Amino acid sequence: MRAARTAVAVTILGIVGAGLAACSSQADELENQLRKAGYTDVDAEADYDSKYNSKKKKNEKKLDDYEATAKAGNCTVEVEQDPGSKDWVVETANGKDVNFRNMTAAALVTELGKQGVKC
């Protein structure tokens, strides 16, 4: 009897753990995509928005997107990816607003150089 309860508990913990790992896997995947594209010092995490639910009378967190910071040359860039998407968007580079989709680090440095931003 005790062994059966232990087996059920271990199974439930395994399922919950797998579910939590799935939540973080897109952030990990974004990090891997950026590293393959030549970015360095990559750090990605899920970004949640807080919204007030008037029916439950409490704030609830909702996944908004995945955000990452990285380096392209000497430029610090901020990258965003929507949940379930494989595409990412470079939103800022050294504080300058930009909008480049799936651009490699080398191509980004070249494009920023054309715009007068040195990396």
Rank of each mutant, 00 (worst) to 15 (best):
G95C: 07
M1Y: 14
K71N: 05
E78W: 05
D87S: 02
T76Q: 13
D28M: 13
V77Q: 01
A105G: 13
A107K: 08
S24Y: 10
A21S: 08
T6W: 09
K86L: 01
K56Q: 11
A22M: 11
Y52P: 05
Y48E: 10
R2E: 11
V98K: 02
Q81D: 09
D82N: 09
L20I: 04
G116W: 02
N102V: 00
Q115I: 07
V79S: 00
E31M: 04
R2Q: 15
A72S: 14
G19R: 02
V10H: 12
D65V: 03
R35A: 11
Y48M: 11
A44S: 09
L112W: 07
K96W: 11
A22R: 12
A27E: 07
L63H: 04
G113P: 05
M1S: 15
G116C: 07
I15V: 14
N32E: 12
A18Q: 06
L108I: 08
N102C: 00
S54G: 03
E91H: 09
L108C: 02
K55V: 13
A44E: 03
E111L: 07
E111V: 06
G116Y: 04
V16T: 11
A37V: 04
G19L: 06
L34H: 04
D28Y: 03
T92W: 05
K71W: 05
E60V: 07
D41C: 00
A46T: 02
C23F: 14
V16G: 08
Y39N: 00
G116V: 08
G17R: 04
A22P: 03
T110Q: 13
M1K: 12
D43T: 07
A105K: 06
N53D: 15
S24G: 10
T92K: 15
D41L: 04
A4W: 10
G38T: 04
C75E: 02
T6V: 13
S85G: 02
G17F: 09
V117R: 00
N59H: 15
K61Y: 09
T92V: 05
C23P: 00
A4H: 04
D64H: 15
K58L: 11
D82E: 14
A21V: 12
G113Y: 09
T11L: 15
N53R: 12
A18D: 05
V117A: 10
A93S: 06
I12N: 11
M103A: 06
S25F: 12
C75G: 07
K61F: 14
G38F: 03
N32W: 11
G73E: 06
T6S: 10
N99T: 04
N32I: 02
V8S: 14
R35D: 06
A27F: 06
A70T: 07
L20N: 09
N99P: 05
G95I: 08
A9I: 06
V42H: 08
T110N: 13
V89E: 15
V98G: 01
Y52W: 14
L30M: 06
N59F: 12
C23M: 13
R5L: 05
Y66E: 03
A18Y: 11
D43C: 02
Q115T: 04
V77W: 01
V10C: 11
G113E: 14
L112T: 04
A68E: 07
V79Y: 00
T110Y: 03
N74M: 04
K55L: 09
I15R: 08
W88T: 01
N99L: 08
T6E: 09
C119D: 10
G17M: 02
Q26R: 13
E67N: 07
T11F: 11
A22W: 10
W88N: 01
D64M: 13
